[in-house]
Design a protein around this nucleic acid. Structure first.
Lengths: 148, 148
DNA sequence: TATTGTTATACTCTATAACTATA
DNA sequence: TATAGTTATAGAGTATAACAATA
């Protein structure tokens, strides 16, 4: 029954999030902030609107995340020379430095959650979730590709 | 890479939750309230502590959920005859009535999210997520079995 | 001393609405 | 008139800490 599938999915995600909270806390980052920082590093420089689209949140929510990251000295906003309405967000040196630690921490957390699965099973799971992800209605990101 | 797996899992869960918000809104329920109501119906009567354990949240958070459900007239608290510290929670008639509508709505939401997967693929996904779920550190629920 | 539930409080995450500056 | 970003605000979902009543 699909609703049970939904439950399992949400349960796994809940556990995952909790794990991330614990593992990211020493870095002074929340899961959403860490995710935003990853996207910023990957696509920098990018406008607030585009960051929001990549994160699949409304622009106002992106403001909050970038505020926190900027206050932590991990990213910086600068005017977009091409459009005086826009701001471009990009990582600072400290932001780039945080990337390695974040990756390690995230890998460990995922490693632990998915430990009960064999490499082959993980690959299968990955494939199935990717199908679901690709079926998502398209966001209007500037250049296509992965959103996260 | 496992961290990408984690991303996909969280993305799917995010979409699922958003879907549930929309589909449950007409019933006047939030996803967490709906989940709590389902657990209550399934295991009633049950103590607040046990409800919290089933939901994998702290007792204080269960209080908030039951407050909302009680105010909506869907569940009721009554003293536990066996222990004057405890309260037993159980569904009202209205709560039981809500079950059918909730199930339909949940089934539709799940149906839509998992539409891109074949029946066989859904089964595979179910199996993999179940492995993850079973590996979860055991809660101390009164009678074993599914927690949700 | 431990357990049950609650009051009080706070924080993350995200949203809508209204506003400002620009295009 | 439409777009980019923000201020202001709200609500869901959860948590910790301190407390009262009971065991």
């Amino acid at each position: 029954m699909e609703s049970e599938l939904a439950d399992l999915l949400l349960r796994a995600a809940r556990r995952m999030r909790r794990h991330q909270i614990d593992s990211l806390a020493p870095l002074g980052l929340t899961p959403a902030q860490a995710r935003a920082l990853r996207v910023i590093i990957r696509y920098a420089p990018l406008r607030m609107v585009d960051l929001a689209a990549r994160l699949d949140i409304v622009p106002r929510s992106a403001t909050t995340l970038v505020d926190a990251l900027e206050e932590a000295g991990l990213v910086a906003r600068r005017p977009d020379p091409a459009n005086r309405r826009s701001l471009l967000v990009e990582p600072t040196g400290a932001g780039l430095d945080a990337r390695a630690r974040m990756s390690a921490v995230r890998r460990e957390a995922a490693e632990e959650l998915f430990a009960p699965l064999s490499a082959e099973q993980r690959e299968t799971l990955h494939g199935l979730l990717a199908v679901l992800d690709d079926a998502e209605p398209p966001h209007d990101c500037p250049k296509g590709g992965h959103r996260d």
